[in-house]
Every structure is written in structure tokens, then in C-alpha cells.
């Protein structure tokens, strides 16, 4: 179990007086893709292209203007424990310890105490925080905090794991370490993952497929399979070739919007004049 299907997804923001969007904003009109069971799919794109919006819609934290999202065939109508979300800003509960943070979703599911303890112990181990289970998040480094975030999402054993630029707030060394850790955890758990990032190398390193979101309103302009064997070496020639392909596509994608082909997305394109 664990298929995420996004069908003709549409998100518009209505015009609002006093804000910049006097005539409304069309983020995307028609985004369709499927993340198969056990597949790791990344969505990349320039900032402001709506990739995080896609994830929020899939998470049920935002409502689409049209289209639908299905998790294992069930339509998404709001947040639910069939999806585990990892936030860019960690969003850990500071009054709970590492173990309690990880147990948060299990408590919502009313998993009985003994079983909950066992699951938490397993997850704490999986994300490499065994000695830190009783720490409060403020004593952890950024990388460790996001391990807790990942653990909290994995603990509920979700059909789909949704990750919103989870390593975006980390320094480059920690970021690579976290990518390695996630790659290992993914091989172990084989979760269905939708991963949002703006980092091409990160996408190539982790994904089975990379979707490129571009344009305004944006759409999926490229669906690139990454059929490299795992574990992947970031310095392999085949890896770097994939990176180059994506980089060219990313540049090309964003230049379609600008009139001159240079300026990256001048202002929001409007619905009508």
C-alpha cells in the first residue's frame, strides 16, 4: 500500500485588495502525476513555482481550487495519519522530548502504551537518536532535529511520506549527511516518498524519478527517471550527467516564462486584465 495520485490539480489564489495580487494568482492549473508504491519521487523547481503548494495540498493542510489527490485510491480531504509529513522548519514540539515528539502521531492513533513504546524505540534507533531519546529539541543540532522530524513521520507508518525541503535549513555538510541517512532509511523502509527540493544534486541522489515544475502557471515540464544503482556516488560520471540534464532543463524551464528569457519570473502573471 502507498500510492499517491495527483489528478489535474489546480490552485489559484483569489484577488485581494491591498495585497500584491490585485488580479489573483494562478499557481498551477493542471498538475497530474503519480508516485507509485515504494517509489521515491522528487519535485524540483525554482522558488515560487508552487512545489511546496503541491505538498501542502497532498498533506491536506491547504485546499485545492480544483482536481484531486488520492492516497491508495482514497481522496484527500484534510490532514490524515495515512501521510507522514516532514517540515522544512522541523516544527518539533519544544515541550516534548525526542521520544515524545516521535510518539505524537501514535498517541493520536490511540496506539496502546506498550506497543507505542516499542515503535518509538525502533524509530529512535532507525533515525540514529538512541542516546538522545530523552532530550528536548532545543538541545539538538539542526540535523538531529530533522531526524526527529523524520522519525515522527515514520512512526505512524504512513502510506506516503511527504517531505517539504526537509534539509533546506541545514548547512551543506549536515545536509549531505542527512541525505545519506535518508537514503539508507529509505532502502530499509521502502516508503512511498514525495520529496520537495530546489537542490538538483539532492534530487538525483535520492530519487527514482524527478519531476520538474516550471512556468507560470506552472506545470510539470519534465519527468526524468533516475535509474542509477544505489548507493549512489555523487561524483560518478553517470550521476553528474543526470545533474547536468536537470540543470539545463531547470534553466530552460524557467526561461519560458520571462519575456526576455533572462529575467527570472518578473511578477506574477495574472488571470486576466
Amino acid at each position: 500500500m502507498g500510492e499517491l495520485r495527483v489528478e489535474r490539480l489546480k490552485k489559484h489564489y483569489p484577488a485581494r485588495r491591498g495585497s500584491g495580487h490585485r488580479t489573483g494568482l494562478r499557481v498551477f492549473d493542471d498538475v497530474t502525476f503519480t508516485v507509485g508504491e515504494g517509489e521515491f519521487v522528487s519535485v524540483i523547481g525554482a522558488s515560487g513555482c508552487g512545489k511546496t503548494t503541491v505538498l501542502n495540498l497532498a498533506a491536506g493542510l491547504d485546499t485545492p481550487s480544483g482536481g484531486s489527490i488520492f492516497v491508495d485510491g482514497r481522496a484527500v480531504t484534510g490532514p490524515g495519519l495515512d501521510r507522514g509529513i516532514v517540515f522544512q522548519e522541523f516544527a518539533l514540539f519544544p515541550w516534548l522530548t525526542v521520544a515524545e515528539n516521535i510518539a505524537f502521531g501514535l498517541k493520536s492513533m490511540r496506539v496502546p502504551g506498550e506497543q507505542r513504546k516499542r515503535t518509538v524505540a525502533h524509530i529512535v534507533d532507525l533515525v540514529g537518536l538512541k542516546q538522545f531519546a530523552d532530550y528536548y529539541p532545543n538541545r539538538l543540532s539542526g540535523g538531529m532535529r530533522q531526524r526527529v522530524g523524520l522519525g515522527r513521520a515514520l512512526a505512524i507508518n504512513p502510506s506516503v511520506l511527504l517531505m517539504d525541503e526537509p534539509f533546506g535549513a541545514l548547512d551543506s555538510v549536515t545536509r549531505e549527511a542527512m541525505q545519506n541517512a535518508l537514503a539508507e532509511i529509505w532502502i530499509e523502509t521502502r516508503k512511498t516518498v514525495l520529496f520537495i527540493t530546489h537542490d538538483i544534486r539532492e534530487a538525483v541522489f535520492l530519487s527514482d524519478r524527478v519531476l520538474l515544475l516550471a512556468g507560470r502557471p506552472s506545470q510539470i515540464v519534465l519527468d526524468l527517471p533516475i535509474d542509477l544503482p544505489r548507493p549512489r556516488g555523487r561524483h560518478d560520471a553517470s550521476f553528474q550527467e543526470k545533474e547536468r540534464n536537470l540543470e539545463v532543463a531547470l534553466r530552460g524551464g524557467s526561461s519560458q516564462t520571462g519575456d526576455s528569457g533572462e529575467a527570472p519570473a518578473p511578477r506574477e502573471k495574472t488571470v486576466s486584465h
Binding site: 498533506a59 491536506g60 493542510l61 490532514p79 495519519l81 501521510r83 509529513i85 517540515f87 522548519e89 516544527a91 518539533l92 514540539f93 519544544p94 515541550w95 516534548l96 505524537f104 502521531g105 498517541k107 493520536s108 492513533m109 515522527r152 505512524i156
Partner: peptide, 29 residues
Amino acid sequence: IDVSLIRAARAFGANGASMFWRVLLPSAM
């Protein structure tokens, strides 16, 4: 309260009364 905490709480199954007791109250403590 940090909005991202409320979003996270919703994503992990808190709503209504449980949102109040498990998230709003402790974070305002």
C-alpha cells in the same frame, strides 16, 4: 504560537480538544 507547530499538530492528528490540550496549552505555558 508558531503557526508551523499548529500545522504539524494537525498533520499528526490533533484537532479540537486534543489540539487545545496537547498543543495550544503547553506551547503557551
